[in-house]
Each structure stands twice: as C-alpha cells, then as structure tokens.
Design a binder for these strands. Structure first.
Lengths: 151, 151
DNA sequence: GGTTATAATGAAAACGATTTTCACTTTCAA
DNA sequence: TTGAAAGTGAAAATCGTTTTCATTATAACC
C-alpha cells in the first residue's frame, strides 16, 4: 500500500479556477497557495493568517468564498474530526481515506480497497442501499510521537 | 455479521446520570427519553421539539446541557455527516461504526473487525501511531429506498 | 493600450447555532 | 423539613459563517 501525499502545484489549481470562469486575483492566489502547499488540515482562520503573509489586504470573507469554490472544483476536501468539523485539505482524486495527526494536523491519504467486501456485507445485512462511506484514521504522525521510553 | 440497534431503556440512562451525581429532573427525563427511544440521529432542535411534548416548559439550553452530559457518560455519540456535524444518537458500547440513512436519519451500528488488518498496514506504511478511527456508511435505509423499477 | 461589463473584494451587518450569565426553582441528603 | 447545591429558562453574549453593499480589479473586447 502506498501513502499518497496531498501536494498539488498551486498553478494547476489556479488554471482550473480560470477554466471554470473564475478570475485570478491576488487574494485568491494567496489562499490557493496556502492550501495547495500545505500537508496539514487547516481551518479558515489558519488559512487566513497564513495567506495574509502573501496578501496583507486579504479578508476572511474571501477565504471562505475561495474555499467554497475549491471544494466545488474538488480541489479541497472538508475534513471532519472529533471535536472539529471545520478543517480543509488539498484533495487527492480517487483516494478518499484520510490519516490525520491529532497533534499537528498532518494529513495523508491512503487506499482502502479492502472495504468493499465489508460494505457489501453490511448492505446485505441491513437492507440499506449504501451510497457513500467515510473511513478516517486519527493518531500521531512520526514527528509528533513521543520518543520511545518516555513516561 | 449482526446489525445492532441503538435502543436503550431510558431508565438505565437516568440511573447512570444519578450514579454520577446528576439530579433527575422533568426536563432531563424528557430529553433522555427522546434520545434513548429514537433509532435516528437527531439534532438539538429536533430533540427540543420532541421533548417538549413531554415537558412543555423545557428550554433549548437544557437540551444542550443534557446532551453534553450524555456524551460525557458515553450514552450518546455525536454523529458527523457530510453537511451536518450536529446530530446525536444513542451510543452502543463497543460498536463504533455507523450506517446512516441520508433521507430519514435512521441509524444502525455494525462491527467492522476486518478493519484491523487495514489499520495495521496503514500504520506501518505511514509511520503514524493510529489511535482512533471512524468508519461510517451513508445511504438509504430499506424504508427510504425508491420502489424497484422507478425512474 | 483603453474601455467596459461584471466578477471579486473587504467592511460591516446579519445570521444561526451554541454557550454563558443570572436570578429563580427544584432536587435530595441530612 | 430544611438548606446547600445543582438545575432551570430567558436573555444576552459569543463564535463561526454568510449576506449585503459600495468599491475595486479582472479580462474580454474594441
């Protein structure tokens, strides 16, 4: 199994925005670069703070509006975590399962193909028509784990 | 695989509240009965509306406060869904995977033991120390599916 | 390059869900 | 029965997010 990192060149995102009729602005560029270049989940305020380093006049409203467009174009996924449903990550097409560090927010996607049999079985047993699923793992990334032998 | 329904006698919940030093009041009883007797996910307003049928003077604030206590005692789980992270269901100890109807909110728990191998593999590949996981299936329960042959 | 329609902007106001504050009421142990 | 403390509902405060609106910037067209 390979782990898939979420890095995507911001230029591709900007191009996709343009292709869909959206204009390229300084504010938008700043927001896109922050999210596209991050390997962590970020909420609106975090994006705002990071993006203002590139575009001081940026407003929080524009962060929300840009995130909404990026979600619409499937460039960004909204991430739900215990105690926080307001984070976003760069999406990776076709790999919908996330592994998230509960300390630093670092995120990695992985494939979960072995779920199919389980889902079929649950559908058969329950009578539900299963349309979608979420599998997410939470823990500590390598950098955030306490050194071995610590109390 | 067996499907586990979430029914729990409200009296057990009330007893557990009492054991933990919480007092039994009419408002609290009404909230507890609504959630304990529902097989669907409910948000605060839905609980409020249903519980007021038993306790007309009930305030929305008390709904929130009671839900918080029930979560703390692991009697209720907060449910995250695409587009709504503010629903609650009666918890079932030891079975943490949910199947939720996106039409009526009916919820069932199921076991997902086959996940263990997957989680171990992801942990080994990624270097993460995996502490928790969410597996949720979304779809339509038997009652909410359109009749076969419909367009 | 200049012009122009319109998309995008930020500030302020509005919004909805949740939490806090507070004066009053209820529970329950002594 | 009594009294300390927990619990209550209403109102106000708070938080994150969305809407409104007058202004600015973009990019297609000349």
């Amino acid at each position: 199994m390979e782990m898939i990192s979420a890095f995507k060149p911001a230029s591709q995102w900007l191009e996709k925005l343009q292709v869909h009729g959206y204009r390229l602005t300084e504010s938008r560029r700043a927001v896109v670069e922050v999210i596209a270049n991050s390997d962590r989940v970020l909420n609106a305020i975090e994006v705002f703070d990071l993006a203002r380093e590139r575009c001081a006049s940026l407003g929080l409203v524009t962060v929300y509006r840009t995130i909404a467009k990026l979600e619409e174009l499937a460039l960004v996924d909204r991430v739900h975590q215990p105690g926080d449903c307001h984070a976003y990550v760069a999406a990776v097409p076709g790999h919908q399962h996330l592994l998230i560090c509960q300390n630093c927010g670092r995120a990695a996607y992985f494939e979960g193909d072995s779920l199919e049999a389980l889902i079929l079985r649950v559908a058969a047993d329950s009578g539900y028509h299963v349309q979608d699923h979420w599998l997410q793992l939470f823990g500590l990334c390598a950098a955030c784990q306490p050194p071995a032998g610590d109390p």
